[in-house]
Design a binder for these strands. Structure first.
Lengths: 170, 170
DNA sequence: ATGATTGCAAATAATTTGCAACCAC
DNA sequence: GTGGTTGCAAATTATTTGCAATCAT
C-alpha cells in the first residue's frame, strides 16, 4: 500500500480542521508562507505525510515518493523533512527507536506504541489534550514554559494481544 | 562533571523508593535476578545511569565510564545498555533526536524537553501519572492494552527563556 | 572447566554535506 | 538572471556484529 489514491496538491477545498490546511489552501501557499520554493519533490513528500497515519520513517517516505518521482534522492527527503519541521509544517515524533519518524498531523494527539511489534497508532483524546493547561499561572512548570505536550502510551496492540493469548492458551 | 562522587556498588543500604533498589540490595543481586554475569563494566555502566538525571546518550555513558575503566569499549556500552533495557533494569527514553538515550529511573515520571537547547529534565507529577488509569474497564483503549504512559512536555527551559527575553529586550 | 562477556576491528545503518546542474520565482 | 533546490557521491555519525582472548561462576 505504498501508493496514493487521492491527490491533495493544489485543490481549493479545505481539508478539515486542525491541519495546516486550516490556514493555507494549497501546498504552494504553505510554501510561500514559509519562504520555501514550491517544488514537485516537496509537494510529494508533504503529500505522502499528509496521507499517512503511520508516522513513517525517512526511508518509508522515500519509498512512497519514488514511484511518483523516480529520480528523487534520499538526501532530498532527509533535507526536506528537516526543513518542514523547522518551518512548522510537520512534527518529528518522539517515540523511541533509532530512526526519525514524522507526522503531518499537528493537531494535539497522542501515540499508542506497541512494545511487541513496534507499531504506532494515533490516539485522539480530549482529556489527554488537557494536560497542556498545566497550571493557573499559565503554561509554566518550574521555570519551564510548556508549549505542547504529547503522551506516549506503551503497551500491546490488539493484534499482539491476540497472539499472546493464543500462545499461552488463555 | 563526568566523575562519580559516591560509589553505589555493593552497599547493603536501600537507596530509596521506586528504583530497582527496592527489590534488590546490590547490583550483584540485580544481575542474578536477570540471569546476567556481574562484571565491572556492567556495574559501572549501571552506576553511571543510576547517578545521572540527564538521560545520557550511549557516548555520554561511555565517556563517564572510561575514567574508571580505561579499556572499556563503546561496543560494550551499546551492548549492555540494550541488555539492561531487555532485562527491565533501565528504560530507553523516547524523546526524539537521532541518538538513543537511557534512564535508570523506572518510576513513573515525565520529561520536559527544551525545544531550543535540547536539554531534558525529569518531571514528577502525580496528576500526570494518573493518565495510566485509562478507563473504568481496565487499562485498555480501543483494543490497545496500556502498560505505562510517558508525557513529553515540549517548550523552553528557564535558561533559554532568559536568553530569549534578553535578546528581545523584554 | 564452561559458557558468558569483553575489546577490537570491521561491517552495517542512519544521516549529513559539498558541489555542479537545474528549476522556481 | 539569480538564488534556492536537487541528485549524486562521498563523508560523518550511530549502531551492530564476528571473533579470539578473558573473566565470572
Amino acid at each position: 500500500m505504498d501508493n496514493y489514491s487521492h491527490p491533495v496538491s493544489e485543490s481549493q477545498e479545505n481539508e478539515g480542521l486542525g491541519g495546516p490546511a486550516m490556514r493555507a489552501r494549497s501546498f504552494g501557499e504553505l510554501c510561500r508562507k514559509a519562504g520555501l520554493a514550491d517544488t514537485p519533490q516537496r509537494r510529494l513528500i508533504y503529500r505522502c505525510l499528509a496521507e499517512s497515519s503511520d508516522h513513517p520513517t525517512v526511508e518509508t517516505v522515500f519509498n512512497r515518493v519514488r514511484p511518483h518521482l523516480p529520480r528523487v534522492s534520499l538526501a532530498t527527503v532527509y533535507r526536506n523533512l528537516k526543513i518542514f519541521v523547522g518551518a512548522g509544517l510537520i512534527d518529528e515524533v518522539a517515540i523511541g527507536g533509532n530512526r526519525a519518524r514524522y507526522d503531518a498531523d499537528r493537531s494535539p494527539h497522542h501515540h499508542l506504541i506497541c512494545e511487541s511489534c513496534g507499531e504506532v497508532a494515533d490516539h485522539h483524546s480530549d482529556s489527554l489534550d488537557c494536560i497542556e493547561c498545566v497550571g493557573p499561572g499559565g503554561n509554566t512548570v518550574g521555570g519551564f514554559e510548556v508549549h505542547r505536550s504529547r503522551v506516549n502510551l506503551f503497551g500491546l496492540c490488539a493484534k499482539c494481544r491476540e497472539m499472546t493469548a493464543t500462545e499461552t492458551g488463555v
